[in-house]
């Protein structure tokens, strides 16, 4: 049946085309606007009892998970295009900036509502590995957020791409941060981490392949 895979392929390309065409009609500002809302919604829930009897921890978790989800979404744009032909590259900056916004909210809740005590905040960052790791992840995202604008892209040129590779360690640290904070090995953080590692793996072969090719060329 030589026609079958072809037909499937055509069908798939047309689905991807539809997504690509449809997404072109979505204005970027609407992504920002929609993306701003979830933390506001969670805050509202926390204030009105919707997050249970311990809203601080719940809010912290929801925001952290939201950040991790956005991080994964942004991270999957390249493999989506490479393997499925779905092109969402227009949204990459907005998703990246929103990710930073979610993680910043998460950090803010931890600082202001959860730990509260300045000396303890510092002690926690230094002494608790999962907090150290989360904090490093956040700091790695800081230059990415600051340079997410056209001016920086022009100014930095090729360095911009290099700089934005910081997202690789940041996403791994984020996933690790979630795995480490649970009292036992729990399914949900491990699933997040597995997704992150899988997405990371989609990037490795290309590099390895080019390296291998170069190696062959040299011989």
């Amino acid at each position: 049946m030589p026609t079958d895979p072809g037909r499937k392929g055509v069908l798939f390309v047309s689905v991807a085309d539809h997504i690509n065409r449809g997404s072109r009609r979505v204005p970027i500002w609407s992504v920002y606007l929609l993306g701003l809302l979830p933390p506001v919604w969670f805050l509202y829930l926390g204030l009105t009892g919707g997050l249970g009897v311990e809203p601080i921890n719940a809010l912290e978790r929801e925001l952290g998970k939201l950040g991790l989800q956005a991080l994964i979404l942004g991270f999957s744009i390249t493999p989506l295009r490479r393997f499925l032909g779905v092109n969402l590259i227009r949204f990459r900056r907005s998703i990246g900036v929103l990710t930073f916004y979610y993680i910043a909210c998460h950090l803010l809740v931890w600082l202001v509502l959860d730990v509260q005590i300045l000396s303890q905040i510092w002690a926690d960052i230094l002494k608790r590995p999962y907090i150290t790791i989360g904090m490093v992840g956040f700091l790695l995202m800081l230059p990415l957020a600051v340079t997410s604008n056209n001016w920086s892209v022009r100014k930095l040129g090729a360095d911009w791409r290099k700089l934005h590779r910081l997202v690789y360690p940041a996403v791994v640290l984020g996933g690790l941060h979630y795995v480490m904070l649970a009292k036992t090995w729990q399914t949900e953080p491990l699933v997040y981490f597995a997704v992150i590692l899988t997405l990371l793996a989609t990037r490795i072969p290309v590099k390895l392949l080019t390296m291998a090719k170069r190696g062959q060329g040299a011989v």
Partner: peptide
């Protein structure tokens, strides 16, 4: 005596809402 992953010096009593003090 701290838990290796967090301090035990303070606690938050459940029921204080979003702005509960430690």
């Amino acid at each position: 005596v701290s838990h290796p992953r967090w301090s035990q010096a303070t606690e938050r009593q459940i029921g204080g809402g979003l702005f509960a003090k430690r």
